[in-house]
Amino acid sequence: MTALAKHFGQHVALEGLSMTIEPGEFVALLGPSGCGKSTTLRLLAGFETPDHGEIYLGDQRLSSAQMQVPPEQRRMGMVFQSYALWPHLSVAGNVDYPLRVQKVASSERRRRVEAVLARVDMTAMAGRYPRELSGGQRQRVALARCLVSQPAVILLDEPLANLDRHLRASMEDYFRDFHRETGTTMVYVTHDQDEAMALADRVAVMQAGRLKQFATPETLYHQPVDVDVARFIGQGSIVHLTRAAAGEWLTGSEAQRLSDQGRARGFVRPQHVVTGVEGGLPAQVERCIFRGERHVLSLRLADGQSLTAYSAAAQPSGSRTGVAIERLWGLEAGEREVKGADARASAG
């Protein structure tokens, strides 16, 4: 994809999107509703024509503002959020349908349908109808229907959005194993950062029709390109530091650099906030939510700034604690991370 742009009237759905996806790579398009990720997928599939830019599959040009290869000739298969199964056709009939449209010989159709149903563990369900299947089973049928045409690229548009938490976790494992076993190139649209980080080799974070950062999950988390990406990937809080506060609460060479600026901002991950520190920055617990393996604390600093922290033990609302910050990402000074054995952020 090179410099892709797509407008719908006055609405800018996509602007200046350039991205190279390697063969066999699992890429997630991640962002809030309306950021352009589904439009990108529809452009790849050939359901939309770009206003500007080009799309290639290998050396073959698929799209530009002047030409468009039809969807059925792109060697791409799409799995929709709604499954889009024919209710009057059996599982085998749904999977067989694309081959009938392509006028594939019946013996070859039967062989390929049996093969893909076996791959998605749905052979025993071949005679059932969509209404007789669970959400996870329907999604596997939709994947099988996509696979039967032997696509070079699989496009998935929020395929787990309609499933409950348990089924989503199960299907995540399924997609991960499927990709590892087949090496198929996959482009996966989601607004769920946990899904994207768990599944993808690389994640494209999108916002307002533009690509913010395209990197591995680890890079996005530890080296976000700006504060928007930092806040979107994982949890975190922004604290404002005055010169006096930076000098008092931050340690090391970065402390002097920040304090010399007069005022700076820092981004803090919850796991880098330590509570119960004697002599630490005073804070009040506003909310404590149990999340199974830990508690999530919403803290309020003396000047009204908020901070999120994790705690192994419950801390009642209204209680007071001392806070220290072990690691802070400096936003004003080139958005570089600030580290210290006891780097504390203070309001002032």
Rank of each mutant, 00 (worst) to 15 (best):
Gln137Val: 01
Arg165Leu: 15
Val120Pro: 14
Val116Tyr: 07
Thr185Cys: 04
Leu133Thr: 06
Phe178Gln: 04
Phe175Thr: 00
Gln137Cys: 00
Ala115Trp: 08
Ser134Gln: 00
Asp157Lys: 00
Asp164Trp: 07
Ala200Trp: 05
Asp201Ser: 12
Glu132Ala: 12
Val141Arg: 05
Ile154Met: 15
Gln137Gly: 04
Ala161Cys: 07
Ser134Glu: 02
Glu114Lys: 15
Tyr188Trp: 07
Glu158Thr: 00
Arg165Gln: 09
Val120Asp: 05
Ala161Asn: 07
Ala198Lys: 13
Met186Gln: 03
Cys146Tyr: 06
Leu117Met: 10
Leu147Pro: 08
Phe175Glu: 01
Thr182Lys: 01
Asp177Arg: 15
Glu181Asp: 14
Leu163Trp: 02
Glu181Gly: 01
Gln193Cys: 08
Ala169Ser: 12
Ala169Asn: 14
Ala152Asn: 13
Val148Met: 10
Ala198Gly: 09
Val189His: 00
Leu156Trp: 11
Ala200Met: 06
Arg138Asp: 15
Thr185Ser: 09
Ser134Asn: 05
Arg131Val: 14
Met197His: 12
Pro151Asp: 09
Glu114Cys: 14
Leu143His: 10
Arg180Glu: 08
Tyr174His: 08
Tyr174Leu: 06
Asp194Ile: 10
Thr190Val: 01
Tyr188Ile: 06
Glu195Ser: 08
Val120Ile: 13
Asp177Thr: 15
Arg168Asp: 02
Arg119Leu: 15
Met186Phe: 01
Ala198Leu: 06
Leu199Lys: 07
Ala118Ser: 07
Ala152Glu: 13
Thr182Asn: 09
Ala198Met: 11
Asp201Thr: 13
Thr190Asp: 00
Glu114Ser: 08
Glu158Ser: 02
Val116Leu: 13
Arg180Leu: 14
Leu160Pro: 10
Leu163Thr: 06
Gln137Glu: 11
Thr190Pro: 00
Pro130Thr: 03
Met197Pro: 09
Asn162Ala: 14
Arg119Pro: 04
Val187Met: 00
Leu147His: 13
Glu195Asp: 15
Gln150Ser: 14
Ala144Tyr: 11
Glu195Val: 03
Met122Val: 09
Ala115Met: 15
Arg140Gln: 01
Gly127Ile: 06
Ala200Tyr: 07
Met197Thr: 10
Thr185His: 04
Phe175Ile: 12
Leu160Asp: 03
Gly136Glu: 02
Ala144Met: 09
Leu156His: 06
Gly183Thr: 04
Arg176His: 10
Thr182Val: 02
Arg176Cys: 02
Thr182Tyr: 04
Asn162Val: 12
